[in-house]
């Protein structure tokens, strides 16, 4: 019997969408991994220390994220944060666990969310139609979890007209359609 060898490689959830609408861009960020970290009871001080030694990150306050290069910590709940970082292989959870040394409870969320980076001059107008939070008042790094077109979503401000949008990977195409449609309404 012939020997078969396969190498499987993961495909981006939206096939690596990268499109322009007018002068605006929608890009799928397939290079980012997501790991959520829950704080053990009374463990906030030691988790803060491991974030500092492991990634040079401060524990984020609610509504803001703390960045260091392409790595970012977002507060998602009173005792939970989400770590977003560049990572190419499917072992994000183990990487984070080894740096935390037991100071936080981790869950790999990489395949659960689709991440879109949206940018361009009409971005605030497009988000105004889509997002119930007033993102024009977000500082750089400002973050919020909310609902867009009935889909749970997270929004993180990277710059004046640059945002990361996260939503469930299971409804990624509907989410992309909502974002695209909103951009089309405000361009041309």
């Amino acid at each position: 019997m012939a020997e078969l060898a396969f190498t499987l490689s993961a495909a981006p959830i939206l096939g690596g969408v990268n499109q322009s609408i007018g002068e605006n861009r929608i890009v799928e960020r397939d290079d980012l991994a997501l790991v959520s970290i829950a704080t053990p009871i009374d463990g906030e001080a030691s988790l803060t220390a491991s974030l500092e030694t492991g990634w040079g990150l401060a524990l984020p306050d609610p509504t803001v994220s703390t960045p260091r290069g392409e790595t970012r910590a977002v507060r998602t709940a009173p005792d939970q944060l989400l770590l977003i970082f560049q990572h190419g292989t499917p072992n994000a959870d183990a990487t984070v666990k080894s740096k935390l040394g037991g100071t936080g409870y981790t869950t790999d969320q990489t395949d659960a969310w689709v991440i879109l980076e949206v940018s361009g001059p009409k971005t605030l107008d497009a988000l105004e139609r889509l997002c119930p939070l007033d993102v024009s008042h977000f500082p750089d790094g400002g973050a919020g979890r909310t609902v867009m077109e009935h889909m749970g979503a997270m929004v993180i401000r990277l710059g004046a007209d640059r945002f990361l949008l996260l939503s469930a990977s299971s409804s990624a195409r509907s989410f992309l359609h909502a974002v695209e449609t909103s951009y089309r309404y405000v361009t041309d």
């Binding site: 609610p62 509504t63 009173p78 119930p132 939070l133 919020g144 909310t146 609902v147």
Partner: peptide
């Protein structure tokens, strides 16, 4: 109390 004013549709 942590996030500021939010629409009741989120709750």
């Amino acid at each position: 109390p942590l996030l500021g004013p939010r629409d009741a549709a989120e709750f």
